[in-house]
């Protein structure tokens, strides 16, 4: 009886039982099959490496920076405050003279920013309790934090704008939604949130 493929691989890898090894040493057909397996392994290893077609370091660096800043901010509960400062000032000055739609967007943004701040405080409070969470919950938290950090990097890029746009409003809406999910994950240890 010739060796099975599984046994032949074990022989090749030096992990075979003694009887398989003995057969493989004397049977011409199994010897041929073994050498085929060895050269296939060499051929696979010799397939060329392929470099990525674009430089991804700037992306990694930006994401890492956003994440680090976010982690610092969220610990002190200043994220929404920092991102919102520029708008609240402008809303204060311009509120009375702006067109209805613009003012409405601004009010909505302001409400979302306030909600963001409230959720961050809640988060801060629950983090202080130092809950122990499972690895999977922690993974969900990291995922949510990553997405919030990404939103924050987009929001901070909009800092130069004079007034909150619809797009900014959408970002704040998404931010509140994610923070809300984060709060419930932290509070309940949920591992899956339908996002």
């Amino acid at each position: 009886m010739h060796l099975s493929l599984e046994d032949l691989i074990a022989v090749r890898d030096g992990e075979a039982r003694a009887d398989s090894a003995r057969h493989a040493a004397s049977c011409p057909e199994c010897i041929a099959e073994l050498s085929r397996l060895r050269s296939l392994r060499e051929a696979l290893a010799a397939l060329p490496d392929e470099p990525p077609s674009r430089d991804l370091w700037p992306v990694v660096k930006a994401r890492a920076t956003a994440e680090r800043q976010h982690r610092i901010w969220i610990r002190v509960g200043w994220v929404a405050a920092g991102l919102a400062a520029v708008f609240t000032l402008l809303i204060g000055v311009r509120g009375a003279i702006e067109a209805y739609v613009e003012a409405k967007v601004a009010r909505q943004a302001q409400a979302l920013i306030a909600e963001s701040q409230r959720l961050e405080q809640e988060l801060h409070a629950s983090e202080r309790q130092g809950r122990v969470m499972s690895g999977r919950t922690a993974g969900t938290v990291v995922q949510l934090e990553d997405r919030i950090a990404y939103l924050d990097s987009r929001l901070s890029r909009a800092e130069g704008e004079r007034f909150p746009s619809q797009e900014i409003l959408g970002l704040w809406q998404e931010r509140v939604r994610l923070l809300d999910a984060l709060v419930s994950v932290e509070a309940t240890g949920t591992t899956y949130v339908g996002l």
Partner: peptide, 28 residues
């Protein structure tokens, strides 16, 4: 490590898009 990580990811996922993601996530 960018080339080996990307290459390995591409071998495993057979997608350049996924391989780029894997490279980013690995280095993050």
């Amino acid at each position: 490590f960018e080339a080996p990580v990307y290459s390995l990811a591409r071998r495993l996922t057979r997608s350049t898009h996924d391989a780029e993601d894997v490279l980013q996530e690995t280095f993050l």
